[in-house]
Design a protein around this nucleic acid. Structure first.
Length: 857
RNA sequence: GCUCGGGUGGCGGAAUGGUAGACGCUGAGGACUUAAAAUCCUUUGUCCGCAAGGGCGUGCGGGUUCGACUCCCGCCCCGAGCACCA
């Protein structure tokens, strides 16, 4: 049953069908194991206070078209939605207003849900997840504990990015060009105790796995570049007149004979040991200067290189030559060994440095078409002792072999990828489920015969030392999960880098029982409490926002399951998303972290597939009408609620898909939506008479209608498969225009048109279908119409005629006409023949039923 | 700097070796209307021409081909990512 509206009243129609779908749970995903499954996933949104952005429904509409299409094709479709709701904006809102981020988040989610539902997406709302729901994040915490147990989580006191404005540590990825990604505030280096995840252990597998997924090449390339694997050698240089030696990493061992100096990063721990007395003052001054430089200054490529001689020399292991050791901030402590051999003849940076400080530049590679130094490619070796004459590739191997014999070097692999800094000094995140106890208490716990935690501990204990005391990490037991956030008076972090949770003393200070695993707050602990107890302090750091989004696609498979993160048989059935649609801004971080967790879960047997996302697609960005990024300050923001109010959800869905290729960046155009809106009205008027009743449709269609209908089914099907929705819509427009012109359209063709329109504009299609036929409860239950192949009924074709490659006309012929016959026809046509008279035909190229090209002289 | 993607009417875009500009927007003219909106019809790359017709045309310059927006070489411009990674 539809509405009773007489004209195309989209608000009434859309409200009616959305309510009906919700009531009937039309789009519930069932675990029907006899049916092939299709899992289509959107990157779930962060429910910001600003409400839904016009860009959100672009990806959601695309995935919805696929979901509805696949369902009509007979698949059992899973198309869920949820909320990535931990994160900084809610916390900053809390700091500003004092309102709890939990309440604020719930409000925002309610707004987002309502807005998303107003698009009529075929989502199974029974499976909604929310990363801030304790029943969700207990499993995020559980995964963390598994990582902990398997030695993939550790603490490290190390320099991290500290943003004093946000009062928080940021991950490398959250710092862009020396300022915070969010807010663009200045950042500095600060030493803090941090949780770190050992993603580097998975570097090779994260690289290899990319071969097996259907992802945009550019995204794969970005991940490859981020992992940054390189192969080369470690070479050890003895320091002259000193017991120390310097280890360097190079990808060019073939240039070893061209090394004329060695450079250490200013932070390299060897610097203070090897520096000569004469140079000490200059070196210390340089280090001091380097420290005060911001990262932006240090990495500024435009500035010239600087450095200081240490007074020490390193001995080149292959020829015994002493090379001056310099320090310079163009060498990074964090990559490789923090030290390099400098080969100015064959490295741009070393060349620039050597030029500036008058250091020898020695060519050891010769190449064809010799141009000037530096030359950084491969070639033939010169001035390289016994290796002279080899080409670079052979020389690399040969020189590494010699280094191995000399015990001065070996083959080595290096990655740009660093371990993942996993703790944040924030309130609004998942608490890290760990308790710290002092070392003597920890040893006492370990000595207990029936020590509960044995199976939850990593091989090597995790500990840190502060003010002379050593603390060891004890994981919470699964019984203690979820570890919920405590209530706090203030959400403001302290200036010393501690999370706001540190101020919730009654929450942080606890007693832990090594035998039962139980935890009780200090205030509940009395002298008479039975059992063995040890004092502890909860970890007060929380997890980064990435944590919850690392595994949400698994939770959708069994969102209410209470004894595992995903129910085994559900995971076996749904396996992984077949299609994942979301923005390219997540090309590296989210998609790399999720792959890391997934591979880990695969290793511990929690999931059965090695990769989380089979096929990935990035929708482009919708720009403002002026062609720039939508922003409040520019005043070019389009509000989806306004557009739906004015044109309806179907029109907005259709328009966003019609705008251009899904992956392209394209500007919004207010006039453009008028076009698709007219198309919908035209559709309505084609089916519905003035009084609101359905027009009569007979049993016969004209030939034209049959052909255009069939062609449209074929084109739209292909275009949906290839996510080319813009051309699918133009084909439907062509089809409708033909219908309107031809008028003799059968019931079957009238129904089929509505069916292929359904994934794009489901409300109007349901409404018209309910008046046209309505034998089934929803048009989405009808099987997708089939394309019957190219019609051979259409025999007369227009054949293009070219003479010397230039289009001169066309002729109407039977599609099977032979080449010779066509030349005769052309000769009889005065307008064509005039290009042939007095010329000889040298050659003809003939494509049957398409084109003929006559070459004359 | 390196890597990748792109450059087609007034605009969004179609066509990946076979009739460039589908489809939509806009503009112009017309029908209906007292009028307007809505709707419908015609037209809309550009130059010459009254017209018939013809020339030019997919960033620029070459090339391959019977035929190039499409493939190859060189250049210009725009966008994205990475950015002293040794």
């Amino acid at each position: 049953m539809g509405t009773n509206c007489v004209t195309y009243d989209f608000s009434a129609i859309e409200r009616h069908w959305q309510e009906k779908w919700a009531r009937d749970r039309t789009f519930r995903a069932m675990e029907d194991f006899g049916k092939k499954k299709y899992y289509v996933l959107d990157m779930f949104p962060y429910p910001s206070g600003a409400g839904l952005h016009i860009g959100h429904p672009e990806g959601y509409t695309a995935s919805d078209i696929i979901a509805r299409y696949k369902r009509a094709c007979g698949y059992n479709v899973l198309h869920p939605m949820g909320w990535d709701a931990f994160g900084l904006p809610a916390e900053q809102h809390a700091i500003k207003t004092g309102m709890s981020p939990a309440i604020n988040t719930t409000n925002n989610v309610d707004v987002f849900r309502k807005q998303i539902q107003s698009f009529g997406f075929a989502i199974d709302w029974d499976r909604e997840v929310n990363t801030t729901d304790p029943n969700y994040f207990r499993w995020t915490q559980w995964i963390f504990l598994q990582l902990f147990k398997h030695g993939l989580a550790y603490v490290d006191e190390k320099p991290v990015w500290w943003c004093s404005e946000l009062k928080s540590v940021l991950a490398n990825e959250e710092v862009i060009n020396g300022v915070s990604e969010r807010g663009e505030y200045p950042v500095e280096r600060k030493n803090l105790r941090q949780w770190v995840l050992r993603i580097t252990k998975y570097a090779d597998r994260l690289l290899d796995g990319l071969k097996d997924v259907d992802w945009p090449e550019s995204t794969k390339r970005q991940q490859v570049a981020w992992i940054g694997k390189s192969t080369g050698a470690h070479v050890t240089f003895k320091v002259e007149n000193h017991s120390a030696s310097v280890a360097i990493y190079t990808t060019r061992p073939d240039t070893l004979y061209g090394a004329t100096f060695v450079v250490l990063a200013p932070e390299h721990e060897l610097v203070s040991t090897i520096v000569s007395d004469g140079q000490r003052a200059a070196v210390e001054a340089y280090i001091e200067r380097a420290k005060s430089k911001s990262d932006l200054e240090r990495t500024d490529l435009a500035k010239s290189k600087t450095g200081v001689f240490t007074g020490a020399h390193a001995i080149n292991p292959v020829n015994g030559e002493p090379l001056p050791i310099w320090i310079a901030d163009y060498v990074l402590r964090s990559y490789g060994t923090g030290a390099i051999m400098a080969v100015p003849a064959h490295d741009d940076r070393d060349y620039e440095f050597a030029k500036k400080y008058g250091i020898e530049i020695r060519q050891v590679i010769r190449w064809e078409n010799s141009s000037e130094l530096p030359f950084c490619g491969d070639g033939k070796l010169v001035n390289s002792g016994e290796f002279t004459g080899l080409d670079s590739k052979q020389a690399k191997e040969a020189i590494i072999d010699k280094l191995s014999r000399l015990r001065s070097g070996s083959r080595a692999v290096n990655y740009k990828l660093r371990d993942w800094l996993f703790s944040r000094q924030r309130y609004w995140g998942e608490p890290i489920p760990v308790v710290w106890v002092e070392k003597p208490d920890y040893d006492f716990m370990l000595q207990q015969d029936d020590f509960y935690f044995k199976e939850f501990l990593p091989e090597n204990e995790i500990s840190y030392t502060s003010e002379g005391l050593t603390f060891c990490a004890v994981p919470l037991t699964p019984k203690e999960l979820p570890l919920a956030l405590p209530k706090v008076d203030s959400y403001i972090p302290s200036d010393n880098g501690e999370s706001p949770l540190a101020k919730a003393k009654s929450w942080t200070n606890i007693y832990i029982n090594p035998i039962s695993g139980e935890i009780i707050p200090v205030r509940e602990f009395a002298a008479g409490t039975p059992g063995t107890w040890v004092r502890g302090r909860r970890e007060t750091n929380t997890m980064p926002q990435w944590a919850g989004s690392c595994w949400y696609y698994l939770r959708y498979m069994s969102p209410h399951h209470s004894s595992a993160l995903v129910e085994e048989h559900s995971e076996k059935y749904w396996q992984q998303p077949d299609m994942y649609i979301g923005g390219a801004e997540h090309a590296v971080l989210h998609l790399l972290y999720a792959r890391f967790w997934h591979k880990f879960l695969y290793d511990i047997g929690a999931v059965s597939t090695p990769e989380p996302f089979k096929k990935l697609f990035h929708q482009g960005i919708i720009l403002g009408e002026d062609g720039t990024k939508m922003s409040k300050s520019r005043g070019n923001v389009v509000n989806p609620d306004d557009v739906i109010g004015r044109y309806g959800a179907d029109a907005l869905r259709l328009y966003e898909m019609f705008l251009g290729p899904l992956e392209a960046m394209k500007p919004w155009g207010t006039r453009g939506i008028e076009g698709v809106s007219r198309f919908l009205k035209k559709t309505w008027n084609f089916y519905i008479a003035d009084g609101g009743e359905i027009k009569p449709f007979g049993d016969e269609s004209s030939q034209q209608v049959q052909d255009v209908s069939n062609e449209t089914i074929g084109k739209v099907t292909q275009d949906i498969e290839n996510l080319r929705f813009n051309t699918a819509i133009s084909q439907m427009m062509i089809c409708l225009n033909t219908f309107v012109k031809e008028k003799s359209v059968s019931r079957v063709h009238a129904t089929q048109f509505l069916q292929i329109l359904t994934p794009f504009a489901p409300h109007i299609s349901e409404e018209i279908y309910s008046r046209l036929d309505g034998t089934v409860n929803s048009i989405s239950l009808l099987p997708w119409p089939t394309y019957t192949g190219k019609s051979d009924r259409e025999n007369a074709v227009k054949l293009a005629v070219q003479i010397n490659g230039k289009l001169r006309g066309e002729c109407r012929v039977d599609r099977n006409t032979e080449c010779d016959r066509i030349i005769e026809i052309v000769k009889k046509d005065d307008r064509l023949n005039k290009f042939l008279t007095g010329k000889t035909i040298v050659k003809t190229v003939f494509v049957p039923a398409k084109i003929i090209n006559i070459v004359v002289e």
